[in-house]
């Protein structure tokens, strides 16, 4: 008699394929891309990390969160607190505690510490907010985002308020962000096949049955909230080290909605959907931008007026969702077995 395969063996190809895809993009970029194209790819990878962070919570719990850009904000500002040269911090952010303003951590240290800070905040607010379900929880996460934004946009001595914080070492490049995105994918994957992930997905699909089977929904939601905040915080750190400048406005409604859109277009309940949603939508945006700049095709210059790109991407997303309301991948994952798609047995 054949032993049934473990969940790990059955599904490990998913993260492997996803990471391989990103690696291929990175290699192609390194070989052929210009400097500014490398920046585009870096930004896409950072976005992948953020949206995978969204997946960890939203995909597994079924609760839409508008608040995760807040964790990105926390991570990015923490990165600034830990890595801006102490001389600058003393002038620009005089309210920082001595121990922080004297510190100048290396990138990796700031990455870990700042992501943990985001997770810690998630734990504290999660203790309160994860009691809520459904749309009430969504609104609570939105309220959380509004609170974070208001605080960071006005706390003069610690966040420099609406003024940008500068002096963050710009160390995030294609490979660093590839590392971040891959780490996010692995964390999401191992979480989703863990006991916790399975329990939360059970609660997402059948809450009463799950409760009856001993799943503590509140606790499970809290766990996934904290892990996803860690990943989103990490993407914030990557972003801060990518741009070199942070500003509260960069982590508010704009990024929330565009990231959620990519996530939903990809497929809300699927890790592959989260990754592919970002890659595909970003690719379309990039192609449209090239058209805006003008592309030569066989001697003919095709040029779209500036501003068409945003309109087109909105229309494209609507069309995709009309034809595939569950997103491009729905609940499916990319798997090596039963190629191209097969319903994941773990679900």
């Amino acid at each position: 008699m054949k032993q049934p395969q473990s969940v790990l063996a059955k599904t490990i190809s998913t993260p492997v394929i996803l990471i391989a895809l990103l690696v291929v993009i990175a290699i192609l970029t390194a070989l052929f891309g210009s400097g500014s194209f490398a920046r585009t790819v870096t930004e896409i990878f950072i976005r992948v990390a953020f949206v995978v962070g969204l997946y960890i919570f939203i995909g597994n719990s079924g609760v839409i969160s508008f608040g995760h850009a807040g964790f990105m904000c926390i991570g990015a500002y923490a990165a600034a607190w830990f890595t801006v040269p102490p001389m600058m911090k003393k002038v620009l952010l005089p309210g920082l505690p001595e121990i922080v303003s004297n510190a100048q951590l290396p990138f990796l240290g700031s990455l870990v510490l700042s992501s943990f800070l985001a997770a810690l905040v998630a734990l504290l607010v999660g203790l309160i907010m994860m009691r809520l379900a459904g749309i009430a929880a969504s609104i609570a996460t939105f309220a959380f985002l509004a609170v974070i934004n208001t605080v960071y946009a006005n706390w003069e001595s610690v966040t420099a308020a609406t003024s940008s914080v500068v002096g963050i070492p710009m160390v995030t490049g294609v490979w660093t962000s590839l590392f971040g995105a891959s780490a996010a994918i692995l964390i999401a994957y191992f979480y989703s096949i863990s006991r916790w992930g399975l329990a939360l997905r059970a609660a997402r699909d059948e809450d009463i049955a799950a409760s009856a089977s001993g799943v503590d929904i509140y606790r499970q939601r809290l766990i996934s909230f904290v892990i996803s905040a860690f990943v989103c915080g990490m993407s914030g750190v990557l972003y801060a080290h990518y741009l070199g400048v942070v500003n509260p406005d960069a982590f508010y409604l704009g990024i929330t909605f565009i990231s959620l859109s990519m996530f939903v277009v990809g497929g809300m309940s699927s890790l592959s959907g989260a990754v592919l949603g970002v890659v595909i939508i970003s690719a379309i945006i990039q192609i449209l931008r090239w058209f805006e700049k003008g592309i030569d095709i066989g001697g003919l210059t095709l040029e779209l007026p500036n501003g068409i790109q945003e309109i087109a991407i909105g229309v494209v997303m609507i069309v995709i969702l009309v034809f595939r309301p569950a997103g491009l991948l729905g609940k499916r994952e990319v798997l090596l077995k039963g190629w191209p798609f097969k319903r994941r047995t773990a679900d």
């Binding site: 809300m268 309109i311 909105g314 997303m317 309301p325």
Partner: peptide, 28 residues
């Protein structure tokens, strides 16, 4: 109308995308 059976999240994102389109048409 084409999203009657879609889940609320999908409809919400579509409404957001629609708003985005309206905004950028006005901008243009």
């Amino acid at each position: 109308r084409h999203l009657r059976n879609a889940n609320p999240a999908t409809m919400m994102i579509c409404s957001f995308a629609l708003g985005f389109v309206i905004q950028h048409v006005l901008l243009m």
